[in-house]
Nucleic acid binder design. Sequence first.
DNA 1: GCATGTGAATGGATTCACAGCT
DNA 2: AGCTGTGAATCCATTCACATGC
Lengths: 220, 220
Amino acid sequence: MGSRTAVRDVSELTTGRLSVYLRCLTYLESIGQKTVSSHELAERFHLNSAQIRKDLACFGEFGTRGVGYDVTLLKQQLVRELGIDRTRNAVIVGAGNLGMALADYHGFNSNGFHIVALLDNDPEKLGRISRSGVRVLPADKLADVIREQQVAIGIIAVTPESAQTVHDALADAGVAAVLNFAPAQLRLRSGVKVKSVDLRINLESLSFYLKGVKEGFTTE
Amino acid sequence: MGSRTAVRDVSELTTGRLSVYLRCLTYLESIGQKTVSSHELAERFHLNSAQIRKDLACFGEFGTRGVGYDVTLLKQQLVRELGIDRTRNAVIVGAGNLGMALADYHGFNSNGFHIVALLDNDPEKLGRISRSGVRVLPADKLADVIREQQVAIGIIAVTPESAQTVHDALADAGVAAVLNFAPAQLRLRSGVKVKSVDLRINLESLSFYLKGVKEGFTTE
DNA sequence: GCATGTGAATGGATTCACAGCT
DNA sequence: AGCTGTGAATCCATTCACATGC
């Protein structure tokens, strides 16, 4: 059922690019293009054509030699491979600025994902509702919400100090995947996949580059 | 004066880890630890000791054989190498949920970074002030603000449709580094370093993993 | 002829393992 | 003895280049 290839055999770099390809195809479909070659995809979106073909080849043979790929067909295939042909529930822990913004972030509430609740232990914040209608619940309801709403994904948007505690609570409650925004090195829990997005590190990386600019190493 | 090693010679993977090490050291310093070995760092924070040593070796020899690294000294060294021993100004373009949240994000307004303004072309939003005091200015003031306040970093928090336009405007105004939150493939401009943070892709990558879990491939 | 799919080649990054210093 | 710093070895990802099929 589904793919021949086990999830473990595909690198995360590849899956990240699948998401990119999916976007490109969605765009091409929106402008009415029926067919696209790996070359054209590469040109238009600044990618590498060989890499596109390699990435796609992980899941079967979707192209036609001499022609290219059927835009709509390939798009559907990617949607299925990424597992966003169904909708998954998620909770956000931490109803601060970031948590609130994420709750209203369109990409988190469409096409395969649905934020069912924000959780916070600050009594001030309880009962508030984000612009898009996500309610702030007390943190001690975490396990209940996850069980009742079959939540598969936990999003951590708390301080680095609380991050490990929240992560453990999510893991204990049975969440299988975590997206962590706290700048902390989480101790991983078996059976729980973690992706961390570290906003600060990205800025620091730019800073490192800027140092070179000032000293005259502009990288072209 | 600065490092022997050109910026271009150090991979981004390395600089990302330098940021991580910096955090670890800040923590160790806060609990009063004077000295640390690459082994201890690796154990405590789930890293690899050989990699730590290799990464640090890019910038000189800071350790003492038989002993380890002086926590405070190494920390200062990393701060300098990352170029966050001075403060850089940044602007955020797009005063929606995400832009507002980023303006108030502590990691963006401390230790080397300062958000001087939000910019938006929605008249509704002009004049608003974020919780931490960042003002929303009209988008057409972009170039002025960048020049007057010597802004080095532009942060893109607009829709994918406007992202390229904003990026070009930032580049034209002389910004040297861009942190892009829009889910779009930007066409790069020479002399401008871009880092993209794609929130949606991270979720999709988790979704891909979850697909495997349901089918029983838990990666342990 | 043209574009896919893929083995082979290249290029990086990580890890190993040890020489050399304290 | 202990730990750094680093060449050598390994692993992984990207790119090349072509055989294969439309």
